[in-house]
């Protein structure tokens, strides 16, 4: 019995360790490449551990490329997407959580239905729509288009969060003479800060990571988002792997940071969108 447990534990742990290695290897390979000096990046056979350490690629990426500009553009888009989606999703989420009104179920189903439409399906008409609105090649194109990616998820996320906050707190505020909106603003929202923060992080990650819409809707170099600037390191004749991997590490950093600080909420949120109806 005891022997079996030990054997089982060994098996379990070694499987976890193996899968962790599988998960981390590509990231390790990217990171290691980014800190190798140029000569070592494309030396054959490649060094599994870097022989010498160098920050030259990071220096190059920050000083000599459009990456910084791309980060600024991405932040502009991200902040705008987050602000707009957070406001509209929290209002709607609140309505769905607290009110009973005719058409509620139909609207819920419709939002879920829209969530199930893959974004790729809308690429062509969105392009034509933005062209008609003369918004192509502006960051507004992305700020609008990204709403499609984040709104349904955020709405369900926030609805679920509001539902978890006891109604009674709000009701006592109403008794004290607060309006509905006043109660939302003074009672429910302050209590929902973790939920709102999770939603904001989601909006950030989605807009930070997206690149197909950006590739198709932006033309000017000055408007390129961070992800698009990564593509500049891929040339017809060769890929500048040293610089590219350094830029990739920069791109992973904020996402990994959010994962580290808010993993519990993020994981719950990731599931919330899919499980809850």
């Amino acid at each position: 019995m005891k022997r079996g447990t030990i054997l089982r534990k060994t098996l379990v742990y070694s499987f976890l360790a193996l899968y962790a290695i599988f998960t981390l290897l590509p990231i390790y390979w990217v990171f290691v490449t980014s800190v190798k000096p140029s000569a070592e990046v494309e030396s054959f056979p490649p060094t599994l551990l870097p022989h010498s350490f160098s920050l030259e690629h990071y220096e190059f990426v920050f000083l000599k490329t459009r990456v910084v500009r791309g980060i600024v553009n991405s932040l502009i888009v991200t902040v705008a997407v987050t602000a707009i989606s957070l406001v509209s999703a929290s209002l709607a989420g609140y309505a769905l959580a607290r009110f009973r009104f005719p058409g509620k179920n139909a609207l819920t189903a419709a939002i879920l239905g829209l969530y199930l439409i893959p974004p790729v399906v809308n690429v062509i008409p969105l392009f034509l729509l933005l062209r008609t609105l003369r918004l192509l090649n502006t960051l507004w194109a992305l700020i609008l288009a990204y709403q499609a990616l984040v709104l349904p998820l955020l709405t369900f996320l926030l609805r679920n969060y509001f539902e978890s906050i006891p109604r009674e707190l709000e009701e006592s505020a109403l008794v004290d003479g607060c309006t509905r909106l006043g109660a939302l603003w003074r009672v429910t929202l302050p209590l929902s800060i973790p939920g709102l923060a999770t939603a904001a992080i989601f909006a950030f990650i989605f807009s930070w990571n997206e690149f197909i819409f950006a590739l198709l809707f932006l033309f000017s170099d000055e408007l390129k988002t961070f992800q698009l600037t990564l593509m500049e390191f891929v040339k017809l004749y060769r890929i500048d792997w040293g610089a590219l991997t350094a830029a990739m590490v920069i791109g992973m950093a904020p996402v990994l940071f959010f994962l580290a600080v808010a993993q519990r909420y993020l994981i719950a949120g990731l599931l919330g969108g899919a499980i809850k109806r």
Binding site: L136, N137, L216, F217, F219, L236
Partner: peptide
């Protein structure tokens, strides 16, 4: 002079020129 990778250039030209806006 602005350079684009070969594969990107054609699509960039299409999307840019299809926008029909001399500014871009």
């Amino acid at each position: 002079v602005v350079e684009y990778p070969y594969n990107e250039l054609r699509m960039k030209l299409f999307t840019t020129l299809a926008a029909g806006d001399p500014k871009v």
